[in-house]
Nucleic acid binder design. Structure first.
Lengths: 201, 201
DNA sequence: TAATTTATGTCAGCCTCTGCCAGATGACAA
DNA sequence: TTGTCATCTGGCAGAGGCTGACATAAATTA
């Protein structure tokens, strides 16, 4: 990886860090792009070459985690039913994020706190999920061997589980990835108790 | 109802109609607030006294329908389980919209078409749902008599089912409220087949 | 070192959205 | 009918998000 590429990664992370810190310190809406750019010594125009929008930088790490999830999903064995495969992929994705370097871990925690404080970002998180929806739906129909309403239902149910995990964590309760993984397991237990065996095949 | 109130209703509907028509004709992003306001002979400043944002006017009817849904929900008998009550309330809300005057019906159809064409609005629809989330959650916990993870799961699942119905209707397939109601029934059948009896109690 | 590619800064500008104040219009009582 | 009051509207100024175009600076490659 050349110098140019390394510089870009560094600038990107610096922008994310500056943004998260400013958002948490002054509030999301009260922080301007100019302030973020200034605190990294970069022109505002450059900010928009790294992130498409203000929301984008706030949820950058969530987007990364989602990419990992999608990658893990296609690595799951074909024998697994759609919902099982997605559940396992989500576990694997959380494990990956949790085992990264400390800085990344902290960024993720800050993103969670920020999302809890500013409900506007929850909608953005939903939008992220929707961006990958087509790919997930394709994976579900592939594993089920049928393209019908049930595939949509499976997708919707998994989205429901994911949302239940990631948002509305109690007041300051969930701050690290391990706790998030635990909550995922709890939610999957509830889902398992609620669903009939073989419902997603 | 006085003259002032009538005028306001008229302006509101005129703005919605103008917005929907312009959005469908030129595209959502290509249409500016100034154009909408001009075609109703109203100042741009006034537009924002009726709608908080551009997205707001595009989804105004969906918001109205959601309000009806919430009202219907609290009218459901206490004996019904949370998911059943929400399902029935949704049926009732769709029936109400379907039996309104013709103009309203057409506006709703236009909103659906617009949402299908511009995925950005789907996220807005999710945001609408989330705006009522606290109230729905309270209703669920009231009916279940418990405030735990399962209540969140029931809420998320219903939200997901609603989304499955309302979006990704095939290419130009669903254009009137009756078809939408039919699709809701189909989806609820799939949900019924997948979930264990009493899962939401 | 020279040529090519790519990232950044600057500038100009559109659009969304808000606060503020003055003028117009409907509501209501004398 | 008329005067008073509450409310709606228009115009203005401005902040902030975001984009296109062009020139400069830096890194890559030969």
């Amino acid at each position: 990886m050349g110098l140019r590429e390394r510089k870009k990664q560094k600038t990107r992370l610096a922008l994310i860090d500056a943004a998260l810190d400013l958002f948490l310190a002054r509030g999301y809406e009260a922080t301007t792009i100019d302030q973020i750019a200034a605190s990294v010594d970069v022109s505002p125009r450059t900010f928009f070459r790294y992130f498409a929008s203000k929301e984008d930088v706030a949820l950058a790490l969530q987007a990364d985690a989602l990419d990992i999830f999608v990658a893990e999903l296609s690595a799951r064995p074909d024998a697994e039913s759609p919902f099982t495969a997605m559940s396992q992929a989500m576990r694997a994705a959380l494990a990956t994020v949790g085992h990264n370097d400390e800085a990344d871990h902290e960024r993720f925690a800050k993103t969670c706190e920020l999302r809890d404080r500013h409900p506007a970002l929850v909608a953005g998180q939903a939008r992220l999920m929707m961006a990958h929806e087509q790919r997930l739906l394709a994976e579900i129909t592939r594993r089920r061997g049928a393209d019908d309403l049930r595939s949509h239902f499976v997708l919707a149910l998994f989205a429901a589980v994911a949302r239940t995990c990631f948002e509305q964590c109690g007041p300051g309760e969930i701050r690290d990835v391990a706790a998030l993984a635990r909550r995922l397991d709890e939610t999957l237990v509830v889902a398992g108790q609620s669903l009939r065996p073989g419902w997603d095949e």
